[in-house]
Design a protein around this nucleic acid. Structure first.
Lengths: 198, 198
DNA sequence: CTGTCTATCGTTAGCCG
DNA sequence: ACGGCTAACGATAGACA
């Protein structure tokens, strides 16, 4: 440590001190080291922005990022799984509920609009369900979990496996609520290690 | 830059100068109108940041946001469902694969570390699976989809339903790939309507 | 990889139309 | 609600440790 008075960066001879932030083009970074550093910084920035949004507006936010090396990073408020669950359930229509009054009391136009709206919801629901089914089907963990393809199960074994799953879920729910993958938002600890304190 | 007053907005007699951006505290906004505007602006900013990150670093990114009014907004590259699927499958251990060489060639310490690593992976996997199971179980759409509780199905009906699900999934996959919920990233169209062009 | 520093760039709070 | 504006604020590229 030499003279601390020099608030400027070490201007050894006469050369450039930090030229500050430079404008960059938004295109794939080629230099690997640079890409890694940029990823780290911008991921932090993104998570901070997400945290601020969720706090300011009291809205649920989840961010899922895979690094260039394939490592998983997440941010979620209240938790990634909660938000993802809400996302997967979005557009849900609990019961057909096609009852209710006939179309007399309202105009055909209004009814048409309502039907259109519900059709779109239904479409969303179907796509969501298909996605969920795809996830389920493509996840060979489920097969391992069930220890046997569903096709080979009769009623009793199916029932047995389901009971096992439910009890497993209940057992795990505590561990799950300990948020191994998400940093919980508290008022007493730094938020996500990003220097945000609430 | 000498004449300050000239570059400003009309401010001579009337005090008209917008005081520009003010510092705000990151806490829940109370004013409802203000909250809505802030949500809109910051959501756009967040999505733009996410897009930039995914382009610069070539990494998969998904952002899921629910507005204060409960409306769903998403951003995803390549798509929200792809990233969510990867997220749900993360930590997967396809096969026990406990074969390969015996533990002789490596030290006990290394073996212990490997075992620890695999145990942690396994834990992650179990939590993920439990989460997925919870989603599945809590989603009454699945029940409606299956038209009958799994417990009441024998092998044949189970098989029939599964076949139905698979064919439905295949049918829907095209519609799903049309990205009804995500704005696709192309080089010819404005990105997410955020003024980003690649 | 994580943090620090600085000059500069990009975002946005508050207002208005 | 939506878009435009401006100045202040916050994020960050590049270099270094």
């Amino acid at each position: 440590m030499a003279s601390i008075e020099e608030t400027k960066t070490h201007n050894n001879n006469n050369k450039r001190t930090t030229q500050g932030r430079q404008k960059i083009e938004i295109k794939k970074l080629e230099k690997k080291s640079n890409k890694q550093v940029t990823f780290s910084k911008r991921r932090s920035g993104l998570f901070k922005k997400a945290a601020e949004l969720s706090v300011l507006c009291g809205s649920e936010v989840a961010v899922i990022v895979f690094s260039p090396n394939g490592k998983l990073f997440t941010f979620g408020n209240p938790s990634v799984d909660d938000v993802v669950s809400s996302y997967l359930n979005n557009g849900a229509v609990a019961v057909p509920s096609s009852s209710s009054g006939n179309g007399n009391s309202t105009s055909n136009l209004v009814n048409a609009m309502i039907e259109l709206e519900e059709a779109e919801k239904k479409k969303k629901q179907v796509v969501r369900q298909a996605t969920l089914g795809s996830i389920l089907e493509n996840n060979n963990n489920i097969n391992a979990w069930l220890e046997k393809p569903v096709e080979e199960m009769g009623y009793e074994e199916c029932d047995h496996q389901l009971t096992k799953l439910i009890s497993l879920r209940n057992k795990i729910s505590e561990a799950s609520s300990s948020k191994d993958f998400d940093v919980p938002m508290t008022k007493t600890t730094p938020f996500c290690g990003l220097g945000l304190n609430f």
